[in-house]
Nucleic acid binder design. Structure first.
Lengths: 202, 202
DNA sequence: CATAAATGAATGACCATTCATTCCTTCAAA
DNA sequence: TTTGAAGGAATGAATGGTCATTCATTTATG
């Protein structure tokens, strides 16, 4: 019997695991110190590897941030695919906003998101990656919203759905921005939740 | 006759002008490169002074970011004071959101705002400064909203107004976050404006 | 002349990236 | 089954550069 593939340094599984270890460590460090203030030395230390090895897996430090965006996109796609019903979709969105409001950042970290947006305003590659992610989200939302409208016998134009998506983004990302600087939440976000419900009502 | 005080290096006016020059240059550089990636050399060059001089006016680089927040707070206070009527207040808020949507960042720069929030998640001093600014904004809003409710004969609790303010912040800051990464706006933000109007309706 | 503003070169730390080297697995030949 | 060569994975010290901050010195004013 062959040894377990996972422990074999030559196996594709090992390579991908290493890659993910580096991405995990990078996320951790970017959140803790910020993208520019996080050194590759600390990323390597956090990942438990040597500094040089990181450059076997990623061409440069900024290549890592692109890979993080890509990975998040992939993870999200699998989530979307497994949520079949329309109710699932909005429940998932509300779930993320509410978990953030309760300082639960396990699903998607708002500080990391901020860090990426900051970088997007300067690095065109990062901007392109995020724009691509945005349009995937939008097209998902369109599909879902169109379907919901059809069931209610309401007709919604492409443009109308785009406007709603823009408002939805504002609310989600506004929440992300707010929670990054509040030690503890004291205010309820029921207005935000009510607005989100308005948006998803045909 | 004495020479004009403005050109006199010993006058308090000159000292404050220098200080503001450094703050202006810092804002410009933080927007352009990000807080950690902007070097003091470049800040000094942008301000047209020597590197050492910046340290006569600010103890350290992070002291500058605190001073920027303080200065914005001061500027905003004078704006609030000069807007007497209730209509003025909401017109001002709508004006900011709409100017951002039209890529006009002259009033308050969203990228700079992002940079500060990022830093707040790591530097407690920055967090404290922003929290202080937040509560000034909130107390302004409370005063204004309470007044508006009274005129309409509606009674609004402190808590209710806090909730509305939280939602207002979400919408404003969500817009800020979105505009930092879109090359050109294609979507109208009429839903966002409608939500803001709901918030300010007693 | 005394004093404060301003300079800019110097300092020591730290950074991203590279590369000569070592470690480890594979696999074909004995 | 053992051997050893081949080559990819991993190391970590070295490199060249940049950074924030300091300070001896110069400049300008009252």
């Amino acid at each position: 019997m062959k040894p377990a593939a996972k422990d074999n340094p030559r196996s594709p599984e090992h390579l991908e695991a290493q890659r993910n270890r580096i991405l995990d460590a990078s996320e951790e460090c970017f959140i803790k110190y910020g993208f520019h203030a996080a050194s590759m030395a600390r990323v390597a230390e956090t990942a438990g590897i040597s500094q040089g090895l990181a450059y076997r897996y990623f061409k440069s430090k900024s290549a890592i941030i692109l890979a993080i965006i890509e990975r998040q996109l992939t993870e999200r796609q699998s989530i979307t695919e497994e949520c079949s019903s329309a109710e699932d979709y909005v429940r998932k969105i509300l779930g993320i906003v509410e978990s953030w409001s309760n300082a639960d950042f396990s699903r998607m970290n708002p500080v990391l998101f901020l860090e990426m947006c900051s970088e997007a305003s300067r690095d065109p590659d990062v901007q392109a990656a995020i724009t691509r992610a945005d349009s995937e989200y939008r097209s998902d939302f369109k599909k879902w919203m169109q379907n919901l409208a059809d069931k209610s016998g309401v007709s919604l134009s492409e443009e109308e759905i785009s406007k709603r998506f823009y408002a939805l983004q504002c609310l989600i990302e506004g929440t992300a921005l707010l929670v990054t600087r509040q030690e503890q939440r004291t205010t309820s976000n029921e207005w935000v939740l009510s607005f989100i419900r308005q948006i998803v009502t045909p």
